[in-house]
Design a protein around this nucleic acid. Structure first.
Lengths: 177, 177
DNA sequence: CTGAACGCTTCACAGGCTCGAAACAGCGGC
DNA sequence: GCCGCTGTTTCGAGCCTGTGAAGCGTTCAG
């Protein structure tokens, strides 16, 4: 969009949380980029490739905001956006294995090897830990899906079907506890 | 910084989580902005006002992202926003260690070394001091979270779950006094 | 079609361990 | 002395983990 000619449209887009690229006419001062991180600008005249790069950058920001990737640090803290949970050792290792193949199926055997590098306990232990992990991850809107006889898969829950848990588990950061 | 001439410096800055503005030489294709949101670029030649606008935009992003961080001065006074508390020596050193890794886990051993540089006392002393530190920090809306079997983590409490303590301890000031 | 086998979920429980909290005592400064 | 800072002891609560067992839907053999 042109700017400042189309200031009205800019505000409309901001209200709708839409990304926008301001094309600056020659001679006008640069705008103050609004704080929602979905805005960028470039001064005309500009090369097509530069404009495209700005658009791509904006697009990438939108993606990054919509699908943040969970990160597990070395201390067993799993972070996603502004929230985090602390994971006990076994579950931290299981989560690391699931995160290695985020969004894809991880076999039960692989999880067993990841969770217990020095020999697995009874075969039920894994099932129970997956249950516990499910509950621990639900405040982060992460879900572990079962793929029958294949393994498990970690994915992000859509905003629509997030459970609102009235059961404040311990060690939940930011809006918990 | 120049780009792509100074690509090495760019990576260094990214590792250090420092913001950076890439000044594109004429003719080179625009870069793919890295995902940490602390990067921007502009093609040379550019008006000084445009470059300044980019820098300001970056600066604003940094401010918006960094939660206001508490500051501990050499006299054991911990300040956050308009409030402050005074900390006794041991707790000041512990707080300094937690602040060094603000928002991340600090191991019990690291805290022991920080709090008692000349040999630690009994192992329970640390627990007790963490308890006392918790109480001292709560008026500042700072919380020390336990990450079981890993260590402790200092973070800011969300406005929602701030306890309203009616326990006016000594040496707690509020912008005046 | 029917029933057994299988795969997964969920609960309840016990042992071991970590951490929280209070009470108490020594020390030092004002 | 009074009060705050520090360290110790002690007790109890809660967490982590593995095991057994019940429940339920699907798959498969007869």
């Amino acid at each position: 969009m042109r700017w400042p000619a189309e200031e009205g449209q800019r505000s409309d887009l901001q209200r709708a949380s839409h990304p926008r690229l301001l094309l600056l006419e020659d001679g006008v001062p640069p705008p103050v980029v609004r704080s929602d991180e979905l805005e960028d600008w470039i001064r005309l005249p500009a090369a097509e490739v530069d404009i495209q790069a700005r658009v791509d950058g904006l697009r990438r920001r939108v993606e990054a905001r919509a699908h943040p990737m969970p990160a597990l640090d070395d201390d067993g803290v799993l972070r996603l956006a502004d929230d985090w949970v602390s994971l006990p050792p076994v579950e931290a290792r299981l989560t690391a294995a699931l995160l290695d193949r985020y969004g894809a199926v991880v076999s039960r055997e692989a999880l067993g090897r990841a969770g217990w590098p020095t020999g697995a306990p009874g075969r039920n232990a894994l099932d129970v830990h997956m249950l516990r992990l499910r509950r621990r991850l639900s405040p982060l809107a992460l879900a572990i899906r079962t793929v029958r006889s294949r393994g498990y898969l970690l994915e992000r829950l859509a905003a629509a079907d997030r459970p609102v848990r009235a059961h404040p588990s311990n060690s939940v950061g930011s809006a918990g506890c």
